[in-house]
């Protein structure tokens, strides 16, 4: 029996290496490499989205309320980070900052020394800039009536933001924000250019090791597609709950 299954595995391997256009056995043999890639990608994307999301809320409020000085500074920050590619931002933080002795001697260096932290910093700054704009737009799109009603109830400005404006803005921003999450996942491939073994990094490592043209990329593409499927599914469920009041009602 054992011999028999051994023979089957052998012929499967033979088929995979010599006949099949994709060497799937070779990919399967390196599942641990891709697993490491998935963990790195998810950790980077989730952390940057959480931190960037938290940062973006006060920035968006300050922008929407045209808070003097802060408004201009935040506008400039958003402009710079939306106006330049994520790859350039990551390179500047990873290779650029490392060139200065002041930075290398500073207390920040233990973090900036690690590619992982450099990528996280770049991703956080990038996604915070985009999310600020998404939230700002959502806040400004709130119907005047909602705010007037809140005023009429005697809510203070702060209570209005907390109870009416932000919840309403988050709901409105949800479909846009799901795009940002998917873009961030795709943008995270930049990590593979600064030595991090993310999903694409795993694919590149596999390609480089065996001088393959596409096996590693196909494996990476399939994994990204599965992740995007899960993300869009998750957001759909979320929207169903948050937008329940918008669903067409049966009469």
């Amino acid at each position: 029996m054992a011999e028999h299954s051994g023979g089957f595995l052998k012929s499967l391997e033979d088929f995979s290496t010599n006949v099949s256009p994709i060497d799937f056995v070779l990919i399967a043999q390196h599942y641990d490499l891709f697993l490491q890639g998935v963990v790195n990608t998810i950790a980077l994307v989730v952390l940057s989205l959480v931190i960037g999301g938290v940062l973006s809320v006060p920035l968006a409020v300050a922008r929407a309320y045209r808070t003097p000085v802060a408004n201009q500074i935040i506008w400039a920050y958003v402009y710079v980070f939306r106006g330049t590619p994520l790859l350039v931002q990551t390179y500047l933080i990873y290779y650029g900052l490392g060139q200065f002795e002041i930075i290398r001697d500073s207390a920040l260096w233990p973090f900036l020394r690690e590619a992982w932290w450099c990528a996280l910093i770049a991703f956080v700054l990038n996604t915070a800039a985009y999310t600020t704009e998404i939230f700002r737009g959502a806040i400004e799109a709130i119907p005047w009536g909602e705010i007037e009603a809140a005023k009429a109830c005697g809510m203070s400005p702060w209570t209005r933001v907390r109870r009416v404006i932000l919840p309403s803005a988050f709901r409105r921003a949800l479909p846009m924000y799901s795009n940002e999450v998917i873009f961030m996942l795709h943008g995270s491939v930049v990590a593979s250019t600064v030595t991090i073994v993310d999903i694409l990094g795993a694919g590149r490592t596999l390609n480089a090791k065996y001088y393959l043209a596409y096996e590693g990329f196909i494996a990476a593409a399939v994994i990204y597609m599965i992740l995007v499927f899960l993300i869009s599914r998750g957001f759909k469920t979320w929207e169903k709950r948050w937008h329940a009041h918008l669903r067409p009602r049966e009469i």
């Binding site: 290779y95 690690e114 030595t195």
Partner: peptide, 18 residues
């Protein structure tokens, strides 16, 4: 082991102390 796309990047990170 750290893997880089080009040899120039390897030297950059050697200088930076990574």
């Amino acid at each position: 082991l750290k893997l880089y796309g080009t040899q120039e990047e390897v030297f950059l990170d050697l200088v930076s102390g990574r």
